[in-house]
């Protein structure tokens, strides 16, 4: 996959930031409006997949390398777990309790509110987006013919 025509490349170059920004917006507003970590993560993955399809492997590696996306995937999973364990280590608190809500409640209907819900949303968004992108990159770069010839 060496990339597509110049028209597709130009359009992809123009709209990649908008798609990524829309995904981040949906993740951050997840506790106020429809959306959340799952929807926003899939849209973030869409923006990187579009770059991979339009430009090919070398340019997509520059945006987000495969190793980096795998690391971010693991970071998202561990961040969800740590946010759950945060409440577990405090006294009188169950697993996944909303600790931040008691110390820093914020005002309702603003972005900084609802305690740790936006943080878990962000972790899920990172996890889902980079996980799907990792699967897609490994599917798109699978070239068994070359490997069999080398063997």
């Amino acid at each position: 996959m060496s990339g597509m025509t110049g028209i597709v490349k130009t359009v992809a170059e123009w709209i990649k930031g908008f798609i990524l920004f829309y995904g981040v917006y949906i993740v951050l507003q997840g506790h106020l409006t429809p959306g959340g970590g799952f929807a926003g993560g899939v849209i973030i993955a869409c923006s990187f997949i579009m770059m991979e399809l339009a430009f090919g492997k070398q340019r997509a590696e520059k945006e987000l390398s495969e190793h980096g996306s795998h690391l971010l995937d693991e970071f998202g999973a561990i961040a969800i777990l740590l946010l759950g364990l945060w409440g577990y280590f405090l006294p009188q608190m169950p697993f996944f309790s909303n600790v931040l809500l008691e110390y820093w409640p914020g005002s309702p209907f603003h972005i900084i509110s609802a305690g740790s819900i936006p943080l878990i949303n962000l972790a899920i968004g990172i996890k889902v987006g980079t996980g799907l992108y990792t699967i897609f990159v490994s599917l798109a770069e699978y070239k068994p013919e070359l490997q069999e010839k080398e063997e």
Partner: peptide, 14 residues
């Protein structure tokens, strides 16, 4: 209990 207006988000994350 959660301060999140989106009840679905409050359920899956809290």
């Amino acid at each position: 209990l959660t301060g999140a207006p989106n009840i679905v988000s409050a359920i899956i994350l809290d």
